[in-house]
């Protein structure tokens, strides 16, 4: 650790290069990076290449529940809508919600956790706050938030952006507690370690101790929480939309497609396979990237 703090300011380029080299040597991480990039590209650029002709309702209904074919590579849904186009539109929303909500939850959770674990005076109040958030029934909380803020936020940012912000915020505010508890537990143990005591005894400021010595050592549980957080955010979004608290019903998301496909699972299994696969691939690739990043950032592993 001391090694890292001494090396970092003097020759940063070589350090980042070392990290990248280590990351590249991690097969799983590279696989994850490629899969995730493909997903993100497909979702962002895909719609420019794939735009099925607009059918009228009567025409579309005749095409309903089609299996994968040349005209509809992923088949059609119960109203004859092209699943590929819907999957791409849904992915944009789901990926954005998943990542942004996860980042909010993890940042906030880590922040609270570090403060509570490091400063004894803050531990009590902050952890009781965490207890309270854990105890609050989620659905009434979300209902109240939506009732209070939806129209106001929508008035400022428009219905879609408003819904996005509200959802991301709602998921973030209701899922930071686990990360906070985990980080606090780790910090409680870390701050009694010799190197932290040493840093303190030479008069390092708490801020510096936290950033230099504590945070790098809580990265691995935080990475796990982050990976799981993305999946949870994507699924929670579908629950929110399902309760009418999320996006307007004509906005598909992966979670929603999965939910809608559920009642057709027995007859048209592909209807749940596509969104399920997309969510799983996202989570899996983020997990591997997280593994690789952790190894790459850890000087002990890198040095090996």
């Amino acid at each position: 650790m001391t090694d890292l703090s001494a090396a970092a300011p003097s020759k940063p380029p070589s350090q980042w290069a070392a990290i990248w080299r280590q990351f590249r040597s991690h097969k799983g991480a590279m696989f994850g990076l490629i899969v995730l990039s493909v997903l993100v590209l497909a979702v962002l650029i895909g719609p420019y290449f794939w735009h099925p002709e607009k059918l009228t309702v009567v025409e579309a209904i005749k095409q309903k529940n089609k299996g994968p074919a040349l005209q509809f590579p992923l088949g059609t849904d119960q109203l004859g809508r092209d699943m590929l186009a819907r999957m791409m539109a849904a992915g944009k929303v789901s990926l954005a919600v998943g990542f942004v909500a996860m980042i909010i939850a993890i940042t906030f959770g880590t922040f609270i956790g570090v403060l509570a674990g490091y400063y004894k005076r803050l531990d009590g109040p902050l952890m009781r706050l965490t207890d309270m958030f854990l105890a609050l029934p989620l659905i009434p909380l979300l209902l109240v938030m939506v009732m209070l803020f939806r129209d106001r936020v929508a008035g400022i940012l428009g219905p879609e952006m408003g819904a996005f912000l509200l959802i991301v915020f709602a998921i973030g505010i209701t899922s930071w507690m686990q990360a906070a508890r985990i980080v606090r537990g780790e910090v409680l143990a870390l701050k009694e370690r010799e190197y932290v005591l040493a840093a303190r005894s030479i008069g390092a400021a708490p801020r510096r101790i936290i950033i230099r010595h504590i945070l790098p050592n809580v990265v691995s549980p935080v990475m796990v929480a982050a990976t799981l957080g993305i999946a949870e955010a994507i699924i929670t979004e579908s629950v929110l939309s399902f309760l009418g608290l999320g996006f307007p019903p004509d906005f598909p998301t992966w979670g929603r497609l999965l939910y809608d496909g559920l009642s057709f699972m027995q007859i048209y299994p592909e209807r749940v396979i596509w969104p399920g696969l997309a969510i799983s691939l996202t989570v899996l690739s983020v997990n591997y990237i997280g593994d690789g990043l952790r190894d790459a950032l850890d000087p002990r592993v890198r040095g090996r």
Binding site: T227, L228, A231, I234, I235, S238, G255, L258, Y259, L262, M265, V272, G276, I279, S280, T282, V283, L284, N287, Y288
Partner: peptide, 15 residues
């Protein structure tokens, strides 16, 4: 184990 865990986590129980 990783694959199973990730599937277990990313697949909601309703599914």
């Amino acid at each position: 184990g990783t694959l199973l865990a990730m599937i277990g986590f990313s697949v909601p129980t309703f599914f």
